[in-house]
Write a protein that binds this DNA or RNA. Structure first.
Lengths: 231, 231
DNA sequence: CGGACCGAAATTGTATACAGGCATATAATA
DNA sequence: TATTATATGCCTGTATACAATTTCGGTCCG
């Protein structure tokens, strides 16, 4: 009775989920540039699936805001503006401010240890200057911290914004200076959390997101990462 | 060439959209109680559509958080807890605080007039004690106000939370006392907006949401609106 | 009497078929 | 040449058919 669920977790995951993740990844990494039209038949062939699960995946992407539907024209990958980035980080920061009290209220010694373990891992990745690994660990660190709050709805909001941020995460972490500061800030976060210092954490997180946002904006402005393909 | 689009607006709206709205409405009003399983074939027959568009509608509801998917078991209408309501209003309030400066910055005389027109409509509905009409106008009023900010992402977050709130809106508006206070507060909002009084608006909105939340919580606690059907 | 195993019914997951709309190209007309 | 009519093809919208999986009832055996 109980081990059946383990089987499921691996092999009988619906195709739509896989399609969803693949497409999401392709959009986030820019493989499918903004403005591109996603023609169902073409992508269904490419992913070796039928249109049905593909369409269901597209509906989720639509709801995520990564693509846009046009009647009888299908989906188009959405373009991003400077204002978008600003809003995304604003929301992110506001949500963090909302859950910080709960994080402090719920945090346990085990959770602190868990965070420190992640940090230890990140230390080595930082020394190796392994940006890809850091990007993943970074998400893990923030995710672990946020989940302590147990505010599932707010976490859902954060998660939905996350999709957009990922798109630019590579650029943020690519900045050597920012990477160094952010790494240090992560350590400070756990220190402050251990001391249950709400105000300190508020200030630090605000600063942390503000810096990330600026790095993003700079990267975007200079490299013109945001492109609109008419097509 | 141009009038073709008018045809579309009415008849060629995808069935999935209609199915989505019908199901959403049924869930929000409690016609389909929390915990119910939504069997695709049954609902497809009932709505006189095929499973394909129905499934796409269900994916959107899933993303909205109104239903939950279980592998090979289909969707189940989600149950709501006191904590959910608290979080929802917390998010709502935080988002409003974020966009209020933009609302003040962007507001025009025409927009103020638009709001006053809605208020005038609401006055008559209030006198008639037409709760249903008030519920709709209430949404229109808040929506109009929020859209002045032009912060599309934050509006999207507000909108996604709205789905949950609607579920309890009926009970909020059912309270005679609350209805009276809320009605007065709506007038004050426009007055403060006309004066570009940011702090006043912040305080008023905070109060407004806090009161709505309490009314909701009371209604839920006493009437036990939140039911979990095992099934 | 209870539990385990088997099979049928129910229901989801996926593929395919078909109908219809929209766009583009081509032809026709002024 | 410009502009409109028309036809064709691509692609989406929807329905249906088929496959896979779960659930549940029943029967058999301990």
């Amino acid at each position: 009775m109980s081990f059946q669920s383990f089987d499921n977790s691996l092999e009988s995951r619906p195709i739509r989920d896989i399609a969803y993740e693949q497409l999401k990844h392709a959009i986030i990494t820019g493989q499918i540039p903004a403005g591109s039209r996603i023609v169902e038949t073409i992508y269904a062939d490419q992913l070796h699936i039928s249109r049905t699960p593909l369409r269901e995946a597209l509906r989720r992407l639509e709801r995520d805001g990564l693509v846009e539907y046009v009647l009888h024209r299908g989906v188009v990958v959405r373009a991003f503006t400077i204002e978008d980035i600003d809003e995304i980080f604003t929301i992110r920061n506001a949500m963090m401010m909302l859950i910080l009290p709960s994080i402090i209220a719920n945090v346990t010694d085990e959770k602190i240890k868990e965070l420190r373990d992640i940090l230890k891992q990140m230390d080595t990745e930082y020394e190796r200057a392994d940006a890809d690994a850091l990007a993943i660990s970074n998400r893990l660190f923030h995710g672990t911290m946020e989940h302590i709050s147990d505010k599932i709805r707010i976490l859902r909001v954060i998660d939905s914004q996350e999709e957009y941020i990922k798109r630019f995460q590579a650029t943020t972490i690519a900045s050597v200076v920012r990477r160094s500061n952010a790494h240090q800030e992560h350590h400070e976060m756990v220190d402050l959390l251990e001391k249950r210092d709400l105000e300190g954490l508020k200030t630090l997180f605000h600063h942390h997101f503000e810096e990330s946002k600026e790095t993003c904006l700079n990267a975007v402005r200079t490299k013109k990462l945001i492109e609109i393909h008419d097509n």
